[in-house]
């Protein structure tokens, strides 16, 4: 029963986010602030993780290529496929559920606990639009982060392969061009768009409807991370099934 109530409340919340808009002069400031904290503030950690995980993928692939008949360009090929199809859009989104999601839940939760949301309501402001809409708009730039992640992941693989002596630069570059299917990029960005919406709204829901005190803010951040991750994984499965199987 509780699951259905939560789904219902979430749906009503989404409806209200797009109702009675906050005036643009105020909204644009809020959007810029959210872009700064949700997108710009995440570039560092995403870049760091992408570079090293890309490197690890390349090393793991190289170490498993024991058969001398297998071409060395497979290292570049496997790195590209892993990074573009799964690592950048999905793995980074799960990390972002921890970073951005917890931040959204705890900031809205704290506003709820300290009655700041009530203060906005008393002023007659559509709190859903004022608090959640800027986060959704800011996360429209989320594909930008995933693009950086894709580039740095492959670059990390390249650096690890060359400096680890697993293959030559020419082999790796040949590998990343091998059998390239442009639709895979579209598939990755379609997934990213869905993940961005999940990342903005699920943590907002957990923060906005929080009940209790400081302890509950911590609990809500954890619950929000779990549900955001679960939804990202499930959505990933459904989209992959729909777009990549014929």
């Amino acid at each position: 029963m509780r699951v259905f109530r939560n789904i219902g409340t979430y749906s009503i919340m989404i409806g209200k986010v797009f109702g009675r808009f906050t005036r643009w002069s105020v909204m644009k400031g809020l959007i810029i602030k959210e872009i700064d904290s949700l997108i710009i503030g995440s570039i560092g950690i995403v870049s760091f993780i992408s570079f090293f995980v890309g490197g690890v993928v390349a090393i793991q692939t190289a170490l498993n290529l024991n058969n001398p008949l297998l071409p060395k360009n497979l290292i570049g090929f496997a790195t590209r496929q892993s990074v573009i199809l799964e690592f950048a859009p999905t793995f980074i989104s799960v990390i972002m559920a921890g970073k951005v999601g917890s931040f959204i839940t705890s900031s809205l939760g704290t506003m709820r606990v300290t009655e700041q949301i009530d203060a906005l309501k008393v002023m007659g402001i559509n709190t859903y639009n004022y608090l959640i809409f800027p986060k959704i708009v800011a996360l429209l730039l989320y594909p930008f982060i995933i693009t950086i992640s894709m580039f740095l992941g492959i670059f990390g693989g390249y650096v690890a392969s060359i400096y680890g002596g697993f293959c030559s630069s020419a082999d790796f570059i040949e590998g990343i061009q091998l059998d390239f299917i442009p639709f895979h990029i579209s598939y990755a960005f379609i997934k990213t768009a869905f993940f961005a919406f999940i990342l903005a709204t699920i943590p907002s829901y957990h923060g906005y409807f929080l009940k209790g005190g400081a302890l509950e803010v911590g609990k809500a951040s954890t619950t929000s991370f779990v549900w955001t991750s679960v939804l990202i994984i499930v959505t990933n499965y459904i989209i992959t099934q729909l777009l990549l199987t014929s």
């Binding site: 005036r23 008393v122 002023m123 402001i125």
Partner: peptide
């Protein structure tokens, strides 16, 4: 609601805004 002023138990001031911004906020919004 625009004719209502409310002082909350914990003040409910917006943390990220200065005193002046907090006070200007209702005018800015309404």
């Amino acid at each position: 609601r625009q004719e209502i002023g409310m002082v909350f138990q914990g003040s409910a001031l917006f943390d990220s805004m200065t005193v002046e911004e907090n006070i200007m906020f209702p005018m800015q919004m309404l």
